[in-house]
């Protein structure tokens, strides 16, 4: 196998909380010892419920948040150890698109200024070259350059997300994190943006970390998928392998919860008992055991390791070790 493009090793992030009048210091681990590789040119999908740490992980990978431990290798450089100036240079190569395009655009900037900002910060080219670059990017995401003098509120939701994508591509990054990039969009627009992301990947040779809570969307775009629960990867495999051969009970429950637009489907919903456990007071052993119908005595005691169950299919569950 070729050298992975992004290599994440034992990445951990703890947050501390001061609670109550007596300022009792507690904390929780949002990302707990996560290791994974993202190969050049692939779409790596990350799924999980809200609060499972998937967005924290994406921020750590881009070093928009400082990790407490572990390493993120971009090629052979550990970016977590880079000094600020070098980090800035590497940021050109790593960009992110967020969920709500409206929240990530300055409402008082024109589209032109929004597009120019990353180019100016990184001192990219001359004025004329920048203008040409913006035209090129607008063409790539099918935005009309007549709109350059407009403001974000004058665009529709889909156009705003196109703008965010164009901006993130301004510095020709190789790696793009899409954090719930289509979740806030209407279904017809969601389809347009998903197709656009796949086209851009081919056109610019991009690598994606694609984060979503929607399993059907993740399945559609990803080459490989990691399922995250409670700050840990619980299952990781090639997309086809994962769906043909679901091993972790949490993945199975996620799958069965996906609403199926087919009234004829006989799918029996496998409904999870409510609620992700409290992060502050985590259950012992496997974090999923309070909601797991297969949980045994060992699951309450001991946290399962992520192991290879064959064909590169990694899973963290005691049920598979016997």
């Amino acid at each position: 196998m070729a050298e992975p493009f992004i290599r994440i090793e034992n990445l951990t992030k703890r947050f501390s909380i001061s609670a109550g009048k007596r300022i009792r210091k507690t904390g929780f681990t949002a990302v707990n010892n996560v290791s994974l590789n993202i190969e050049r040119g692939e779409v790596f999908g990350l799924v999980g419920e809200s609060g499972c740490g998937k967005s924290t992980l994406s921020l750590l990978v881009l070093r928009l948040l400082e990790a407490n431990g572990g390493a993120v290798y971009h090629g052979d450089t550990n970016i977590l150890e880079l000094p600020r100036r070098k980090m800035r240079r590497i940021r050109r190569d790593m960009q992110i698109v967020f969920q709500d395009p409206y929240d990530s655009l300055d409402p008082r900037f024109t589209l032109e200024r929004i597009m120019n900002e990353p180019l100016q910060i990184h001192r990219w080219g001359t004025g004329a070259e920048r203008e040409a670059r913006i035209d090129e990017l607008f063409a790539a995401v099918s935005l009309d350059k007549q709109q350059l003098k407009r403001y974000p509120h004058q665009l529709s939701g889909g156009q705003r997300q196109r703008l965010c994508i164009a901006r993130s591509l301004a510095l020709s990054p190789g790696f793009l994190v899409c954090d719930e990039a289509v979740s806030a969009l209407d279904v017809s627009i969601q389809a347009q943006i998903l197709n656009l992301l796949l086209d851009l990947k081919d056109e610019f040779g991009l690598t994606y970390l694609f984060i979503s809570h929607n399993l059907a969307v993740v399945k559609f775009v990803s080459d490989r998928i990691g399922v995250m629960y409670f700050g840990k990867i619980v299952e990781l495999a090639d997309t086809d392998e994962l769906f043909d051969n679901v091993l972790h009970p949490y993945t199975a429950a996620l799958l069965s919860a996906v609403p199926d637009p087919d009234p004829f489907s006989e799918k029996k919903r496998d409904i999870l008992p409510s609620g992700v456990p409290s992060l502050i007071d985590p259950p012992g052993g496997c974090a999923f055991h309070p909601r797991c119908k297969y949980a045994g005595e060992r699951c309450a005691r001991e946290s399962p390791e992520l192991r290879d169950a064959g064909r590169g299919h990694l899973v963290a569950c005691h049920r598979l070790e016997c």
Binding site: Q190, N195, L215, A216, K219, F220
Partner: peptide, 12 residues
């Protein structure tokens, strides 16, 4: 246009 778990097509 909704991707479902059955979607096989490469484009939506």
């Amino acid at each position: 246009c909704i991707p479902t778990l059955q979607t096989k097509r490469k484009r939506l």
